[in-house]
Design a protein around this nucleic acid. Structure first.
Length: 452
RNA sequence: GGCGACGUGGCAGAGUGGCUUACGCAACGGCCUGCAAAGCCGUCUACCCGGGUUCGAUUCCCGGCGUCGCCUCCA
C-alpha cells in the first residue's frame, strides 16, 4: 500500500484508508482574485499525479478541492477596480479551470465554494463561541488557540516557542487578541463590503474556517488525506485543525505538503515578492506537458526551479518519449510487462518516488527500443508497460500521426520513391522542405514517417 | 531570536553504510544510414569543509560554512 510522508508525524507512513477501496482527499484550492501562477500549477499537478496513481491501482478517489470566493484580496481588488466582487471571482474561477485544463489536471470530484457554506461556518463558529474556544472583539470573532491542546503540531512549535521566537514581528490586531496566534473566524464588515448575517453582527468568514466545514461536510470525520502547498502548513492547516480539534472532531488522518517553486536565484515564488509567473503564459509558449514532466523528474517535497533550462530539458525529454510512442505505434498490442509494473508500483508507493518511476520509464524505453530494433516479441509488453505507466501519471505521449495532412504524407511517399531511384538530391530536397515546415522526418528501412 | 529543510558530476536531479555509483538533458566517440533523423553501444566529470563512529561514509553523529523556507496574506 501507498506510503506517504505525513507532516503531522514527520515520518513516512502508510496511508490508511477509512474505507477499503476508497480514498477521501481534501486539497486546499485557490483564492480567486488573480491568474493561476506556477505555484498553483505545482500543487495541482502533484495531486493530480497522486490521484491518477490512486485510481490506477484501483481505488475510488473522492477529491474535494475548494474555491475561496470571499476574502480580503477579492474585496480589495473589487474596490480598486470599482466592479462587483462576484465579477472578479467568476472570471478568475473560469481562468483557473482553463489553466487546469491546459496542464491536464482533472477536475476534483467536489468543488465547494466558500460562499455556499457561510451558514454552516456561522453555525460552527457559534459552537466554538459557546464552548469558550472563541471570543468576541471589536472587529470580529477570534479563535482562542490556547484552548487547543496540541496547537503547533503542524508548525513543529509550541505556542510558547512561537511567542518566544516572535522577535521583532508585528502582530496584526494584537491589541485585542489574547494570544498573537489567535486568528479571526468572523470578520465584521465595513459599509459597502459583502456581508452575511451572524449572531455577532454582519460580516464574512475568516479564511481558515471554510476548509474545516467543507471537508467535514463532504468527506466526513477522519477523512484520509489533507493536502496543499508547504506554505499552507502553518498557519492555514494548523488553524483548520485547531477548529476541528476544539470541537472534538477527528480531522484529517494524514497530511501531505508539496514543496515550492523557486526562481532562478532559488527563492520561493511568492506573490508578495512579485516573482510569480502566470501559468497560462507557460502553457501558451511551451508544451503543456513540460511542467508535468519536470515535476515527475523531481520529488514532490523538494523545491523545483522552473527556469528556461528546466523547460528546455523537459521539452527535449518529451521529444524522445514522443519519438518512442511514434515508433511503438507499430508494435502489436500486448499485456504490459508485470515486472516493470511492479517496479513502478514499488517506486510510487515509496512516498511517490516519481523520479525513480521516470527512470524506470526511460530504462524500459531503451529496452523496448532494443527489442524493436531486434524485431523481438519482447517489445510488445515493454511498450505496453511504458504507455501504461505514463498514463498512470497523466503523461500523454504523442505519436504525432493523427494530424498529418494528405499532401505531407504524399511528400513522404515521394521521398521514398526518390530514394528508391537513388535520386538523393531530390530526396534531400523533399526532406529539407518538410523539415522547414516543422515536420520531424524519420527515414527507416521500412520507409519514411513524418510527425510533428 | 525560535523552528525546519537542504548543500551530489557540464546542467538538472534521485538515491545509498561497501555492489555495474540512478534517470534525463548536453558534450564527445562508435554502430546503423546514400546522407540525415530516430535508435543502440561507449566515454567524460560527484557527493560543501573539519572532526567522530565504523573494517569501510557521499550516506550515521557532532561542529563549522553556505543556501532556502516557516514563524504575517501565499500552492
Amino acid at each position: 500500500m501507498l506510503h506517504l510522508y505525513d507532516t503531522a508525524t514527520r515520518s513516512v507512513r502508510e496511508l490508511a484508508l477509512r474505507e477499503p477501496g476508497k480514498v477521501s482527499i481534501y486539497l486546499c484550492g485557490p483564492t480567486v482574485y488573480g491568474p493561476a501562477h506556477l505555484g498553483h500549477g505545482r500543487a495541482t499537478l502533484s495531486y493530480d499525479i497522486l490521484r491518477r496513481y490512486l485510481e490506477w491501482i484501483g481505488l475510488e478517489v473522492r477529491l474535494a478541492s475548494n474555491i475561496t470566493d470571499i476574502d480580503d484580496h477579492i474585496i480589495n481588488r473589487a474596490q480598486r477596480e470599482d466592479r462587483p466582487w462576484q465579477d472578479i471571482t467568476t472570471k478568475c474561477e473560469a481562468m483557473w479551470f482553463q489553466a487546469m485544463d491546459g496542464i491536464g489536471v482533472q477536475r476534483p470530484t467536489d468543488i465547494p465554494h466558500a460562499t455556499e457554506y457561510v451558514e454552516e461556518m456561522v453555525e460552527m463558529i457559534g459552537q466554538l463561541v459557546d464552548q469558550d474556544s472563541a471570543y468576541l472583539t471589536d472587529d470580529g470573532v477570534y479563535m482562542d488557540v490556547e484552548s487547543v491542546d496540541d496547537y503547533g503540531l503542524l508548525a513543529f512549535q509550541t505556542l510558547d516557542d512561537m511567542r518566544a521566537g516572535g522577535g521583532d514581528r508585528e502582530v496584526f490586531g494584537a491589541e485585542q487578541k489574547r494570544h498573537p496566534a489567535d486568528f479571526v473566524l468572523w470578520k465584521f464588515s465595513k459599509p459597502d463590503e459583502p456581508a452575511w448575517p451572524s449572531p455577532w453582527g454582519d460580516g464574512r468568514p475568516g479564511w481558515h474556517s471554510e476548509c474545516v466545514v467543507m471537508s467535514l461536510d463532504l468527506l466526513g470525520e477522519g477523512f484520509d488525506l489533507h493536502c496543499g502547498g508547504q506554505d499552507l502548513r502553518f498557519p492555514h492547516h494548523e488553524n483548520e485543525r485547531a477548529q476541528a480539534v476544539a470541537l472534538g472532531k477527528t480531522f484529517a488522518n494524514h497530511w501531505m505538503h508539496n514543496g515550492f517553486v523557486v526562481d532562478a536565484e532559488g527563492e520561493k515564488m511568492s506573490k508578495s515578492i512579485g516573482n510569480v509567473s502566470n501559468l497560462l503564459d507557460l502553457i501558451e509558449h511551451y508544451d503543456p506537458r513540460a511542467y508535468r514532466i519536470v515535476l515527475l523528474q523531481s520529488h514532490y517535497r523538494s523545491p523545483v526551479r522552473l527556469g528556461q533550462a528546466a523547460i528546455d530539458q523537459a521539452v527535449a525529454s518529451l521529444a524522445g518519449l514522443d519519438a518512442f510512442a511514434a515508433r511503438a505505434a507499430n508494435v502489436p498490442a500486448a499485456e504490459s510487462d508485470p515486472g516493470v509494473r511492479e517496479q513502478f508500483r514499488a517506486a510510487m508507493e515509496n512516498d511517490l518516488d516519481t523520479p525513480k518511476a521516470m527512470s524506470i520509464v526511460f530504462d524500459t524505453v531503451r529496452a523496448a527500443n532494443t527489442a524493436i530494433d531486434a524485431g523481438s516479441d519482447e517489445a510488445g509488453p515493454l511498450v505496453a508497460a511504458v504507455l501504461e505507466i505514463c498514463g498512470a501519471v497523466g503523461l500523454d505521449l504523442s505519436t504525432g500521426a493523427d494530424d498529418v495532412p494528405d499532401d505531407v504524407s504524399a511528400q513522404a511517399a515521394a521521398l521514398d520513391r526518390a530514394r528508391a531511384d537513388k535520386d538523393y538530391a531530390a530526396a534531400d530536397a523533399i526532406r529539407a522542405a518538410l523539415q522547414a515546415d516543422g515536420w520531424t522526418v524519420e527515414t527507416t528501412a521500412d520507409g519514411t514517417t513524418v510527425r510533428r
